[in-house]
């Protein structure tokens, strides 16, 4: 059993087939893309002492970590695109796409006991983008958060429930779409909820390499 290199499977594999779902007439109202090649980690700072974590983020990615539900985008050497989401008091989620090689969060190491703890969550979540002229209408069937663009603006983050399942929702800086992280074990139910809410609008699903 020497070379056992295992294939990594994306969260929606076996649940979501690429192609058109729901109504077939005209342009799809919703476009969902699964982002399969990424790394995700939780950064857990010491209670009430964000300074070491904030400093590490500035050093490593030249960004100010958000102190309220916001997303900040940055980059560093090997990491072409990284997003940092506020995810609770003294907690952030760091996303890098595509998945970097090596220890991309090395900047957050050190700092001893006062420094942040890092927890890999790459395997535990699925990641999709939701865009299209009816994306907001479809999401209104899934989340109770007000998604009006004046209320949920680019860069805003919401930790909430999507069809009664925990999810992290945010708006990227550019465009009118949404990004969502969900629990891998609930992928099947998440997909069925998306299918149901998008059916009348027509939905295109694709998977990023």
């Amino acid at each position: 059993m020497a070379d056992l290199a295992l294939a990594a499977s994306p969260a929606l594999a076996g649940h979501a087939e690429p192609g058109r779902h729901g109504a077939r007439q005209g342009e799809a109202g919703v476009r969902i893309v699964e982002r399969a090649d990424f790394a995700l980690a939780a950064i857990l700072g010491r209670r009430g002492d964000p300074a070491p974590t904030l400093a590490a983020a500035r050093r490593g990615f030249a960004i100010d970590l958000p102190r309220k539900p916001r997303a900040v985008e940055g980059a560093s050497g090997s990491v072409k695109s990284a997003t940092f989401l506020w995810a609770g008091p003294d907690r952030w989620l760091a996303l890098a796409r595509p998945r970097p090689t090596g220890d991309w969060l090395a900047a957050f190491h050190g700092g001893g006991l006062g420094g942040p703890a890092l927890v890999d969550l790459t395997g535990g979540r699925g990641w999709i983008s939701i865009a299209g002229p009816r994306a907001r209408d479809a999401l209104a069937r899934l989340v109770a958060v007000d998604l009006d663009p004046r209320v949920f603006a680019p860069g805003d983050v919401a930790l909430t429930a999507l069809a009664h399942m925990p999810a992290t929702l945010w708006r990227p800086e550019a465009g009118d779409g949404f990004e969502a992280l969900f629990d891998r074990s609930m992928a099947g139910s998440i997909w069925r909820a998306l299918e149901h809410s998008c059916a009348a609008f027509g939905m295109d699903f694709a998977r990023e390499a």
């Binding site: 539900p69 008091p89 109770a144 958060v145 930790l159 909430t160 429930a161 009664h164």
Partner: peptide
């Protein structure tokens, strides 16, 4: 205080 107004079933 962090996330804003939400339905009670989130709690």
């Amino acid at each position: 205080p962090h996330c804003g107004e939400r339905p009670h079933d989130e709690f």
